[in-house]
Amino acid sequence: MNIRQAVSPPKAGPLRGKEMSSLEIKHDVNIAIEEGKISYIGREYVEAYQYIDGSQLVVMPGFVDCHTHIPFVGSRSSEFIMRLSGKSYMDIMRAGGGIISTVKEVRKASATSILADSLSSLDSMLSLGVTTVEGKSGYGLDKENELKQLKVLRALDSIHPVDVVPTFLGAHAVTDEYGSPEEFLDLMAGIFDDLVELTDTIDIFCENGVFDEALSRQYLMKAQKKGFKVKLHADELSSSGGGRLAVELGAVSADHLISADNETLVLLAESETVATLLPGTSFFLNEPFAKGRKLIDLGAIVAIASDFNPGSCNIFNPFFIIFLAVSRCGLSVEEAINAYTANSAKALCLEKEKGMLEVGYDADMVLIRAEDYSEIVYNFSRDLVEGVIKNGNRVR
């Protein structure tokens, strides 16, 4: 009741260009919730069985983290030290570290232990206002363990308050047990029929030295023929053609884009593909940051997400990710909020139910102790969250 500021994107995603710099801000309003949905926003008094005093609070939609690598187990802290001594991401991967080291841990682990670790991560994310996440497989790299990860994601969605959206990332890396990338992708494509009850989206790590543009195209076209939506890890470590391919195939999103060339940025801006920026990864790897300012100025649909994973970005705090988007990628505070709510919901095809404070939308909200929403960037390292509401229930 009597909320100091109710802050929301002005409309459902996708927002692009100048739209991204606008927020709908309402002062001294009440928000009513019924059956997990927002049922009223306004200044009239509403009868309820429970009230929350919002007079000292900024209320925003729950953050939608549209790119994480939950579920996983194990630590790769030793690789962080290796990078500090000058080793690159690809150097570590070629030496048997990187993704492959987590694959070994996931293959050894039971589904129960993977579930337990992931529940702990989701608890922490929820306490920071993240109410929806995408989780990816990709640490199994064989049929048994890829399906194990996807089943864990299904279980997480059923038992944890956070909504968990699963994506199949079997095409994440190639282990030594396979003769070639082509052979491996044929194996992964052979799993597609087993995925129908577990996910509707296929992802691939399109990168020089992993799966090049031509192989990625063949693989994703097979997925589309089976009725799956597609997305790509694109142009992360090099300008590998992933962003161009995402536009060509009408992908839901192209993620990373650190190394995307100007032609790719223009193509993305003229498309319906969401350009998802992951500034935490650039920070964690000490790499350049994606050209967020240019993408927005060109008119692209820009989202931001954490890329939370054990190797290249052990970060899931949305306030820190927003700080990086503003201070390193050139976004305004307003653009970053829209990118982590309405546009990130669009990246998960959930724009009609999440990412806004609007009647009929899911009652997913983060309650922030602040005088103004802009303080979330200045005070990103503080404990700002007074409470989190998920599906109408106060969960913190």
Rank of each mutant, 00 (worst) to 15 (best):
Q56T: 05
A48W: 11
V385K: 01
L257T: 04
G36S: 12
I99G: 07
S120M: 13
Y89H: 08
Y373T: 05
V165S: 04
P181C: 06
Q218T: 13
S121M: 15
I368T: 02
V196R: 12
V59D: 03
D163H: 07
G209R: 03
N393L: 15
A214T: 06
M1Y: 14
T281F: 14
A370R: 05
G129T: 03
F192Q: 02
L295C: 07
F72V: 01
F63Y: 06
G227T: 13
M93L: 15
I304V: 08
S137P: 02
H172R: 09
I100K: 15
I389Y: 15
F319R: 02
N208P: 00
P279Q: 11
V59H: 01
N30L: 04
S127G: 13
L278F: 10
H160Y: 08
A260T: 12
G311D: 03
N2H: 09
T167C: 06
T112H: 10
D163W: 00
F308E: 07
R369M: 09
S124Y: 08
I159C: 08
V133R: 04
T175N: 12
Q50A: 15
I301F: 04
A223D: 02
T264Q: 04
V395H: 00
R217L: 11
A363H: 09
T199N: 07
L267R: 10
A214Y: 13
E371R: 14
R43H: 12
V73I: 15
R83S: 07
T264Y: 07
D142I: 10
F192S: 02
S306P: 01
L220P: 01
C313Y: 13
S77Q: 06
V377I: 13
F284H: 12
Y178A: 13
S312H: 05
F323P: 01
N30V: 05
E334H: 08
D212A: 13
L198S: 11
